[in-house]
Nucleic acid binder design. Structure first.
Lengths: 215, 215
DNA sequence: TGCTGTGAAACCGTTCACAGCT
DNA sequence: AGCTGTGAACGGTTTCACAGCA
């Protein structure tokens, strides 16, 4: 079967594994490994060989039977497939600890992402800068900034009560993807893709597991 | 069927929904609502009624047929079930932006959690304090501190290369739960529960979705 | 022979729909 | 009558196992 460029719906689990796989391929490529089999990949990066093959099969045929995958080539194709071959601009709304942390973080700056704005509503923060020098601007300037710079991704690190309003502000300004860290579920809005990441849930999950194991 | 106190394995999806449900119950209780049906709960908090009932059924019978659930009582039972009726001590290893952000955050301090230590390997940070005043200590003091204070949860916010070593340090010191934010998968270790939260994956997932929708 | 790509089977979580308690 | 608790149906994802190509 030949390459399908547009798989219908791909699960989040799959895209997460592809990210992990790509990360692994970067390591292998840097180490000069030319080809590798799915089972070697699986062993090395703690995945499942059949699953790697299935995940990749969603997008076409990437391997060579009897040989495996060409590392350099697969890395390049995955990078493009994941949309990491171009740099995405990111606006962060909420310059609390987490917002500033993300603004400064390597994750949100190297490798395909670039923070182009950091906003807050607190007058005392406005005008200040994060540790690495990202200026904190007034959230009231956000609409104008969105219209002017059309960022790819909006990250919400504001308090829960502000989050829904900010999300719809981002969505209606045409920001196509929203990553929400506030502890409120923001529904997909106006065709924007929304991903909710509620850190409290992970922490409470651990508390739960501790309780289940006694003490 | 009567109450099962020990369901075998409960999915993460379930515990996340229970956290969300508990959050909702706190709101209802604060508002003075005495009883509520699963369908009203579902509507109000964007869940599914059958699923709420199924989730709760894992732990016993909580409702009253024909009436629904008594808010106050369910809240109390869920709080205890999730292990949130006692305060868990948290140690954070890695005082970068994210580590400090978590150390200061409401999530990691109110409602059942308390940060009791923040460690780093960088001599320039040691001795400093986070914004809210949590002192940053030398990671070399960590083993002694773990032995002395026996924290419930260890949070890793260190760079990827340091994470595995820190995880095994925590695990072998008997820290029963580990929350790892470093972009390396830490396997369950020495009977410790490990939860990996890789923020990069969420961001890359959005990049992927942007790429899939053209541009 | 060695490994991919992929149907088929197993597994798991969600949704449906209703029996039965209040 | 109303709503829970739950068996049964469903849908999706993971794993197995092998046909077929290099």
């Amino acid at each position: 079967m030949s390459a399908k460029e547009r798989p219908g719906q791909v699960s989040e689990a799959t895209t997460h594994r592809l990210s992990l796989l790509l990360r692994g391929l970067r390591v292998l490529d840097a180490a000069g490994t030319a080809t590798i089999s799915s089972s070697a990949l699986a062993e090395r990066f703690d995945l499942n060989a059949a699953q790697i093959r299935k995940d990749l099969a969603l997008y076409g045929e990437f391997g060579v039977r009897g040989l495996g995958y060409r590392v350099r080539e697969l890395k390049a194709r995955l990078t493009s497939l994941m949309g990491l071959d171009r740099s995405r601009t990111v606006v962060i709304v909420g310059a609390g600890n987490l917002g500033q942390a993300l603004a400064d973080s390597r994750n949100f700056n190297g490798e395909g992402f670039r923070v182009v704005g950091l906003y807050d509503a607190d007058g005392r923060k406005i005008g200040a800068r994060s540790r690495t020098g990202v200026p904190i601007r007034d959230v009231r300037e956000l609409p104008a900034a969105l219209a002017a710079s059309r960022p790819d991704i909006g990250v919400i690190t504001a308090p829960a009560d502000a989050a829904p309003g900010l999300a719809s502000q981002l969505a209606s300004a045409g920001v196509p993807a929203i990553l929400n860290f506030a502890p409120v579920r923001v529904p997909p809005l106006l065709g924007s893709v929304v991903k909710n990441v509620d850190l409290t849930l992970f922490l409470e999950n651990l508390a739960y597991q501790l309780a289940r194991r006694g003490a």
